[in-house]
């Protein structure tokens, strides 16, 4: 392929990567500051990582986030997979599709105020329970999206054959349908889990005061100013997402190759 005259494309690409990484790099570098400032480096140390691990509030917030994410993921995965199968195999309808996908398409703020109003109207006390329900609501939609796209690629002939041979719908589902969509179910579950861990707006509206999730805790700290401790936390979270994305990419490539 000829590449002449396209130099500006490479400039754009490199510029874009700089744009994406310079702010993050700034935070990572300042997190190793030995001084109290989040902005100006005095010397290098791991002091703020130490403080981070000694901070019980952050530990609680992380635990709260994990609790919510696990609950929401289990629910979304089961219900979402069933929905996807139902939508593809039994009831093809664009109206139903749109209905089921609504929580993924609606602006998060809309869902957040709706659920806040609804939980209040029901008299449900706001807390981790209400956040879990809220996260399950949009998590389900994402699981449906992922599983459905896989189901559409498969044709239904195996299932038909299974039923022609006298297997009931339940047997067919467990022995034929489920194994063939298993990778997509796993992918959907991972997506729901990650989105829940990271979600701020809906949790902010549907949570009570006693049990902040990690993003809520981060938000309240960020509002109270820049500190090296937040820089250290940010760097750790960045590390986690680098590992997760790279692992995901490697796994994806491996399954692609196996096909």
């Amino acid at each position: 392929m000829r590449r002449s005259g396209l130099g500006f494309l490479w400039v754009a690409l490199v510029g874009c990567l700089l744009f994406l990484y310079v702010p993050i790099a700034t935070v990572v570098v300042t997190s190793f500051n030995s001084g109290k400032s989040a902005l100006n480096i005095k010397g290098l140390s791991l002091r703020w990582y130490g403080e981070l691990f000694d901070d019980p509030d952050l530990g609680h917030a992380l635990l709260n986030s994990l609790t919510v994410a696990v609950g929401a993921t289990v629910f979304s995965t089961v219900v979402g997979t069933m929905l996807a199968v139902g939508l593809v195999r039994f009831a093809r309808s664009t109206v139903l599709d749109a209905f089921v996908m609504a929580p993924a398409i609606l602006p998060d703020l809309m869902l957040a105020i709706g659920l806040l109003a609804f939980f209040t109207w029901l008299g449900l006390p706001l807390g981790l329970g209400t956040v879990t329900i809220a996260h399950a609501a949009f998590g389900t939609a994402f699981v449906v999206a992922v599983v459905r796209s896989r189901l559409v690629q498969l044709d239904g002939s195996l299932e038909e054959a299974s039923q022609d041979l006298g297997a009931g719908w339940a047997t067919t589902f467990v022995r034929i349908t489920l194994p063939s969509v298993a990778p997509a179910v796993l992918a959907g579950a991972l997506l729901a889990f990650t989105l829940s861990l990271d979600e701020f707006v809906i949790a902010f509206f549907t949570n009570g005061p006693d049990s902040p999730t990690l993003p809520i805790e981060i938000y309240s700290r960020v509002r109270f100013g820049v500190t090296p401790e937040i820089n250290a936390l940010a760097s750790l979270l960045l590390l986690v997402s680098v590992v997760a994305v790279v692992a995901g990419a490697v796994a994806f490539r491996r399954t692609e190759r196996e096909r």
Partner: peptide, 8 residues
């Protein structure tokens, strides 16, 4: 104390 106590 540090800022985190302020938020409390």
């Amino acid at each position: 104390a540090s800022n985190s106590t302020l938020t409390r």
